[in-house]
Design a protein around this nucleic acid. Structure first.
Lengths: 208, 208
DNA sequence: TTGTTTTCTGAACAGTGTTCAGTATGTTTG
DNA sequence: CAAACATACTGAACACTGTTCAGAAAACAA
């Protein structure tokens, strides 16, 4: 009786249909301007149907947030094959920023919007955990290579992630109005590069 | 003819009445759950009346965002009288984080939400400019005191602000799920303190 | 073909931001 | 003082939103 398996498959296809349409609309029009009714129209179903496959809008957003993480992890993959640990670290920072600039809506969903996070609350955030794990691994490599002084990997990774995230969050939410439009890109790059230098100098072992 | 002046004053009082009620409701119930109608009910006016004093909801949010900056600048005032420049810098960082934790709604409005920012767009963001100026001044003092190597004040200030902002933004938007609840506070503090040390070591003049 | 289960939908509910004609109030002028 | 004007306010409506649910339609089982 493969019939229940086919049903399961059809169910998954329907979820995909909804998610693909939703993502397309979100990327086209931004989040504020896309409603359940819009998505339903796009796939030619009734709005009520969507609620047969997603508990509510937040669950739909959370599914897209997961998709965003899959894309991000895929984007990061090539970096992990670089040789020098510190180059890896810098490349990851740049990739993070680039991901945010090129996929602002996804990034928003992944790291800024509250909505998709409301459903899990105190529960473990596996997507974030996985991505953070990547960073921790590279930090560990930097320590193993003697580039960073040995100390809590978690704390160092946290500091680095926060710093990179800060730039991107402020940029995406248009909080860089104090820097003239024309200089902005330059200042951002300079600040990133300064951060890398500062890390290198500030975290290196004392006897180096 | 002080009559038009009185009208002007009454107009300002009405704006205050709306803003005070709005802020109270926002702090009580969060942003998502407060509507123009709620605010109108609270001050016992019709919803339409609010539109005589604010162009739309975004303008109201922007006014509250300004109020948030006034509070923040006031909170920062005592710090500016500290003696050692680097102590000032650290105190500012801590004050920024503390402000965010103690006034999450205001902070949201000031630095995260897109809504209040939509109205000015490319225009100058005077509130942010002013606050950023405070930071730039302290960074300059650190350079003058020989604690930091001389370089672009703007870039250094940018780097520091971004880093501190990163922590708070991730924390407020519940993106620290990979750190167990119990350790979180500890890790955050450790990361902040590590950042201060890293700055000190990474930005000090070469010959020191 | 009948009965049962699953999948879907129209219509409604309670809410949102916003507009506007019309009323009520306050101010100025003849 | 009364008429004319200006300002302040509101009820009702518009076009939306997320969400629910009784009942129609389709798919499956006997």
């Amino acid at each position: 009786m493969g019939i229940i398996e086919r049903k399961e498959r059809e169910r998954e296809e329907m979820r995909r249909l909804v998610l693909d349409a939703a993502l397309r609309l979100f990327l086209e029009n931004g989040f504020e301007k896309v409603s359940i009714r819009n998505i339903a129209d796009a796939i030619e179903y009734s709005p009520a149907t969507i609620y047969l496959y997603f508990k509510d809008k937040n669950e739909l957003l959370f599914a897209l947030h997961q998709q965003g993480f899959m894309k991000m992890v895929a984007d990061f993959q090539p970096i992990l094959h670089l040789e020098k640990p510190f180059d890896k670290l810098m490349a990851m920072g740049q990739a993070y920023i680039r991901f945010a600039v090129e996929n602002p809506q996804l990034f928003d969903l992944m790291f800024i919007m509250t909505a998709p996070m409301d459903k899990l609350d105190t529960e473990q955030w596996v997507e974030g955990d996985q991505a953070f794990g990547l960073l921790e691994r590279v930090v560990t490599e930097c320590m193993d290579a003697g580039i960073f002084e040995r100390q809590s990997v978690q704390v160092v990774a946290m500091m680095i992630w926060s710093s990179i995230h800060g730039y991107t969050a402020l940029f995406l939410r248009k909080r860089l109005g104090m820097i003239p439009e024309c200089d902005r890109h330059q200042v951002m790059e300079a600040a990133f590069s300064l951060f890398c230098d500062t890390l290198l100098r500030g975290l290196r072992p004392e006897n180096a």
